[in-house]
Design a protein around this nucleic acid. Structure first.
Length: 578
RNA sequence: CGCGGGGUAGAGCAGUCUGGUAGCUCGUCGGGCUCAUAACCCGGAGGUCAGGGGUUCAAAUCCCCUCCCCGCAACCA
């Protein structure tokens, strides 16, 4: 890659050219429910970055998967009369199907119940133990089984005060304290736990954040994490003895791993950690550390505090970046089933097409900040950007090529092209040639909306170009010119100056070439329609590109290709749908 | 005084670091065009940039105060 902009950007520490591998992850999703908008959001974002990195020539490994352990799973399974394994085996295909429906191009899919992972977790624990980072301690206190959360006395006291202020009790009829989060009764537990010496890592973590300002993004999350760690860290209970649906800890009979510790290690397992095979070791050396973990802002602490501390304790390098995106809100409220404002990913994809859905989520809000979501707004953006601007541009250009050039791509001879460029200018080419730099910088900054806006600039410029050049007028003038020449017995092929037909060819080529380029740049986010646009231009699959910068060079659309008009890419939607 | 983010046209946002005629998208009003998915292009209306004070030749932008909203405060995408 020849571009130097990304190297100069102070905003990111994504891989530089010496790193062939680009390893990125989503969280592994907890299988207690089917995929929802939040998980889909994270996954679509990661997929789009993965697709961009592949186009840009990186050896990309995009990992997603499932978190299948924990007490909640045991209970859900029991309620259905299934074993935990049967239960998770039933849910897993739902995730896989959803990702397939949403065009998710993951390279790796990991489930925490896989033997390779169990072995990795056990070895990791052993390593922590050998390094003196684990000790045995007693835990006494209240635990919320459905939330899998322990509550300390302070939290319970605070909750009791709050309830009292509302005139309510903080206990049920049986005198059991209620969960401050969910209101269900808490269970008193007393168990021997293994503790991880998280408190030992406070300063090392702060130093790491300081030295690696892009480790946590966006900045607001980084500030939060730094403030939190500065507030002091307590050792973390990392084992459970009250149930057994988890990874058994090798040096502690009856203990299984705390689900989060188990879950985080997936990022290592997937690239070969814990395996005895030489090829896995090689894979691990090549792939780790991950370039970026995509997470929702709610699980930032696990990824930015506990996870790096665990890696430090195990003597393993830390991932380069954790990017925490915001929540999707409906009219400013968090989506939840009780509010009845939940939208399902598959329903939205059906209404707006998969690409329309993906585009909306990545273009309409700053990735990282919370996004407010309404059907009205999605329809608005879909119609404005996709139907009216992008889809309609394709219709216009392809139709005119069919009408005026008999569906053939005509690239002018360089001399004619140069003469016309000098006379008329070529604003689309100028615009297109600036795009790789700004687009790839936006993508590397994980700013999808800016990247999309850049491509839309070219689309808008092309729509304007059509107005300004008025090919329908050129076609008439060209026909008149030809008729006149024939009447006078002149062969226009011999003309020294460019003819009207040349101008028409020039204009339409510039349009089609701009469309080729826009489709390629849209491809990471809208893979299906970009592939369709390329097919209509007589080109192959844009997703097979492995050198984006080269593929974006002006003139890539070959003369002689036949174009096909096709149906509208994004049919306009009626606002009544909302 | 817990920490942090934010309050900019009817809606959603950018601009604030690096002061210098207030910008984008949608909506709305008027005009143009006809290749196209009633799309596209041009123009207009609409904002005392939450409020107050200060610094400056000049403040949305820097400083102080007040009001309001929202995150975080140990294990929910």
């Amino acid at each position: 890659m020849s571009d130097s902009v990304e190297q100069e950007s102070p905003e990111q520490n994504l891989p530089s050219s010496e790193l062939e591998s680009f390893y990125l992850t989503t969280p592994i999703y907890f299988v207690n429910s089917v995929p929802h908008l939040g998980t889909a959001y994270t996954t679509i974002a990661a997929d789009s970055l993965a697709r961009f990195k592949r186009l840009d020539g990186k050896d990309t490994l995009f990992l997603t998967g499932l978190d299948e352990h924990g007490q909640k799973i045991t209970q859900s399974a029991a309620a259905e009369g299934l074993t935990p394994q049967e239960w998770v085996d039933n849910i897993a295909p739902k995730f896989i199907d959803t990702w397939k429906s949403l065009g998710i191009s993951y390279d790796g899919f990991i489930r925490t119940t896989e033997p390779r992972h169990i072995q990795a977790v056990q070895r990791f624990f052993q390593k922590l133990y050998d390094n003196g980072a684990i000790y045995k301690g007693a835990y006494k206190g209240y635990y919320c089984v459905p939330e899998e959360t322990f509550f300390n006395d302070d939290e319970l006291f605070e909750f009791a005060e709050k309830r009292a202020a509302e005139g309510l009790a903080a206990t049920n009829e049986a005198g059991q304290p209620l969960c401050p989060d969910c209101g269900r009764p808490l269970t008193f537990v007393e168990e021997e736990n293994l503790y991880f010496r998280l408190s030992d890592y406070q300063q090392r973590l702060l130093d790491y954040y300081e030295e690696n300002p892009n480790f946590i993004r966006p900045e607001i999350r980084r500030n939060e994490v730094v403030a939190f760690v500065k507030g002091g860290l307590k050792d973390l209970s990392v084992s459970r003895t009250t149930f057994d649906w988890g990874v058994p800890i090798p040096f502690a009979e009856g203990h299984v791993s705390y689900v989060w510790v188990d879950a985080l290690i997936n990022y290592l397992t997937a690239v070969g950690y814990g395996s005895d095979s030489a090829s896995d070791a090689e894979e691990f050396a090549r792939r780790w550390p991950a370039q970026i973990h995509f997470v929702g802002k709610d699980i930032i602490r696990f990824h930015c505090v506990i996870w790096p501390a665990m890696l430090m304790a195990a003597g393993i390098e830390l991932p380069r970046q954790v990017f925490a995106h915001g929540f999707l809100l409906t009219k400013g409220e968090k989506m939840s089933k009780s509010l009845g404002n939940v939208m399902s990913p598959l329903e939205l994809a059906e209404t707006f097409s998969v690409d329309g859905y993906r585009y909306y989520f990545l273009s309409d809000f700053q990735f990282g900040a919370d996004g407010s979501l309404t059907m009205e707004r999605i329809i608005q953006v879909y119609n404005a950007d996709l139907a009216n601007s992008w889809g309609n541009l394709c219709s216009r250009a392809l139709n005119m090529t069919k009408k005026y050039l008999d569906s053939e791509v005509v690239e002018l001879w360089p001399r004619t092209d140069a003469a016309l460029t000098k006379r008329l200018g070529n604003p689309l080419r100028e615009k297109a040639e600036t795009l790789y730099a700004s687009y790839s910088k936006a993508m590397d900054d994980i700013d999808f909306s800016k990247a999309m806006a850049k491509v839309l600039e070219l689309v808008d410029a092309a729509n304007l170009y059509i107005e300004q050049t008025a090919p329908w007028s050129l076609a008439k003038e060209a026909a008149a010119e030809t008729a006149e020449a024939e009447a006078a017995g002149i062969n226009l092929d011999d003309a020294k100056a460019p003819t009207k037909n040349d101008v028409l060819d020039f204009v339409l080529y510039n349009l089609l070439e701009s469309i080729r380029i826009a489709a390629l740049l849209f491809a990471p986010v809208m893979p299906q329609t970009s592939a369709e646009v390329w097919r209509r231009l007589g080109l192959g699959d844009p997703l097979e590109c492995r050198d984006l910068s080269a593929a974006l060079e002006w003139g890539g659309l070959p003369s002689g290709n036949r174009v096909e008009v096709g149906d509208p890419l994004f049919p306009r939607l009626d606002a009544d749908l909302a």
